[in-house]
Simulated scan of single mutants.
Amino acid sequence: MGTAASPAVEPVVGEPAAVADLETERALLVADVHAGVEVGLRYERGVELDSRADARRERLVGLLAETDADRLVVLGDLAHRIGAPDGDEREELETLVRAVTDRVPMTLVEGNHDAGVAEAFADDLDVIDPAGGLLGAESADGRGGTVGVVHGHTWPDPALLDADVVCMGHEHPQVRLEDAVGGSRVERAWLRGPVDPTAFVGDPGPDAAAVEDPPELVIFPAFNERSGGTWVNVEGQSFLAPFLPDTLPAGDAYLLDGTRLGDYRRV
């Protein structure tokens, strides 16, 4: 674990996206784009929804410009349907990938929905293994640090414990909020807190137990508002990642507008 100050992973206010300053470039990070979700819902549930493909693409490209990013990093589930994309879904993905890569390089951390996408777009994307990887970073004071990236559907590579910050998707965290008159609404949320190293990897061994300065874990809200999620503050709600909630024993929830809600389990 390095002694440098942690590199900043800063959410973009009002958006399910964050930026990180890596060694030689500024990265925009998003998770769970789920391109083609409308196609998937049609096949999976017989639900007919108007496509928001154009709006999703324009929003993503707009964020690249707004944040002056040099790279897009997708923390898994770029696509919605599992398997090789075809038809309307492939057309949406081709248009999206082209719109991004005409501007900046694109890195995909392979999610549980992405095996077919990673193969189909191998020439267009830098692909990181599902167990995750490390991206070099430089903190604000010029000292080095690292950002770990992983999707979250499998046990992470223990090497991610060497990161200062670990960013993940997969969970689509949401909070259910109630008002004074009994009404409720569900909003996407960020979860942030220190990692419990012994719960983070499947077979921790003595190295994990010896980690004195564990990384911060940042769980991203889903970029796609139609992809559902985990209600993290509802009793009995199960998590999707095999290492949650144990690996985040003391995490806080934040709304997209930056409002800190406190301990995510007690919101």
Rank of each mutant, 00 (worst) to 15 (best):
V165Y: 04
S51N: 08
S6F: 04
H170W: 06
R188S: 07
F223G: 01
A140C: 10
L108F: 08
R266G: 04
E216I: 06
V104L: 09
A118S: 13
L108A: 07
P214H: 07
P215W: 04
T101H: 04
G193T: 09
D50C: 02
E178Y: 09
A131P: 03
V127G: 03
E48K: 13
P206W: 05
G183I: 05
N224Q: 03
G228T: 09
T146W: 08
H151Q: 07
D123H: 14
V234K: 13
L28D: 02
A84Q: 06
A131T: 15
T101S: 11
T198W: 04
T67H: 13
V234E: 11
D157T: 08
D162G: 12
L240D: 01
R266Q: 11
V12A: 04
S184Q: 14
A137E: 03
V30L: 08
P194F: 02
G262A: 10
V100K: 03
D179R: 11
P7I: 15
L161Y: 08
L49Y: 01
G144T: 09
V9K: 03
D77H: 11
F220L: 01
G169D: 02
E225D: 15
G148E: 03
G62L: 14
P215R: 04
V201I: 13
E23W: 14
F200Q: 06
G83P: 06
D257E: 04
R265L: 14
T259W: 02
P215F: 10
P85Q: 11
R188T: 00
P156G: 08
G2W: 07
N233S: 02
P214E: 02
D50V: 10
D179A: 12
M1E: 08
S238K: 13
A27T: 10
F243L: 11
M1L: 12
P215Q: 11
D21Q: 12
L240F: 12
G193D: 05
L256P: 06
R226L: 15
G14V: 05
R192Q: 02
G144L: 12
L22I: 13
P204S: 09
N233I: 01
A65N: 08
A122S: 14
L78N: 00
R42Q: 08
H153Y: 01
V97L: 13
V97N: 10
G144K: 08
F239I: 00
V30M: 05
A163P: 02
